[in-house]
């Protein structure tokens, strides 16, 4: 709207000759911020007069009542109340904090969880190391040097789980190795696999194949410890062998007595 039109409307209004339609126009101008109330003389004067009056003041009764209420409220706040503790406005932030912490904890836990893929890889790697130890052991057992073969036997003791290849190789060493120490070491290594019935049977069969008194005595002691009654026949065979030394015979006899 043109400024002239606004001025004309204000002029008419101030002159008290504005029509209802023009009043509506003035209101529209006020609403749109194109005209200020101060421009309209009569209402401006009234407005100023309203502001000039003395402002009423409350009495001291209001102060007294207010501070009494405040003291009462402060005392009530100091005394713990379960009702207030569980009041929704009080409990809502606690609940929100608790939930947020829980969600954060779960998120962190999920992020740092042990990944199955990694676990599988570690298991595979461990298996590969075991297989490698097995190969080394089997290779060392084939060596001519007794020290190497002893190393091979001790290597088998380091393995967490030995395969059938390992136990077979140890039994073969027990039965066929030239060196008594190696055979004794093999017997010692086989002790941990004695829970296997197949290994136990092979150990029993091995008794009659031994010609070393030390190995014979060690086997007899192992049979006693395992309470392997099926070994009695094999032990008796050594007992009746003329070539068996008398000390060994005594030892074997004692073992047979325990087993029977």
């Amino acid at each position: 709207m043109k400024k002239e039109r606004i001025d004309a409307l204000v002029y008419k209004y101030n002159g008290g000759i504005a029509s209802p339609q023009e009043l509506a126009e003035i209101e529209s101008l006020l609403e749109d911020g194109l005209l200020e109330i101060n421009a309209l003389q009569d209402v401006q004067a009234l407005d100023a007069q309203l502001g000039s009056g003395t402002r009423p003041s409350p009495t001291s009764r209001l102060d007294k009542n207010f501070y009494a209420m405040l003291r009462k409220e402060s005392r009530r706040k100091q005394s713990f109340s379960w009702k207030l503790f569980f009041a929704w406005p009080e409990v809502a932030p606690k609940l929100a904090f608790g939930s947020a912490t829980l969600i954060l904890g779960l998120a962190i836990g999920f992020y740092f969880r042990p990944v199955t893929k990694d676990r599988d890889q570690i298991q595979l790697l461990s298996q590969q190391v075991n297989d490698l130890k097995e190969i080394i052991m089997l290779t060392l057992l084939e060596k001519e040097s007794a020290t190497d073969r002893l190393k091979a036997v001790s290597l088998s003791q380091e393995m967490k789980q030995a395969s059938q290849h390992v136990t077979s190789a140890l039994l073969k060493t027990l039965n066929e190795d030239d060196n008594v120490n190696v055979r004794l070491a093999a017997l010692d290594a086989l002790r941990q696999y004695a829970f296997d019935s197949q290994v136990r049977a092979e150990l029993v069969r091995s008794i009659s194949r031994q010609d070393s008194p030390l190995v014979q005595v060690a086997l007899a002691e192992l049979m006693t410890a395992l309470q392997e009654k099926s070994s009695v026949k094999e032990l008796e065979r050594i007992l009746h062998n003329e070539r068996t030394p008398s000390d060994v015979k005594n030892k074997i006899k004692k073992s047979i007595d325990v087993l029977t």
């Binding site: 003035i26 209101e27 006020l30 609403e31 749109d32 911020g33 109330i37 309209l40 209402v43």
Partner: peptide, 8 residues
């Protein structure tokens, strides 16, 4: 704007 009209 509506408040201005109300005051007027």
């Amino acid at each position: 704007g509506a408040v201005k009209v109300k005051v007027f």
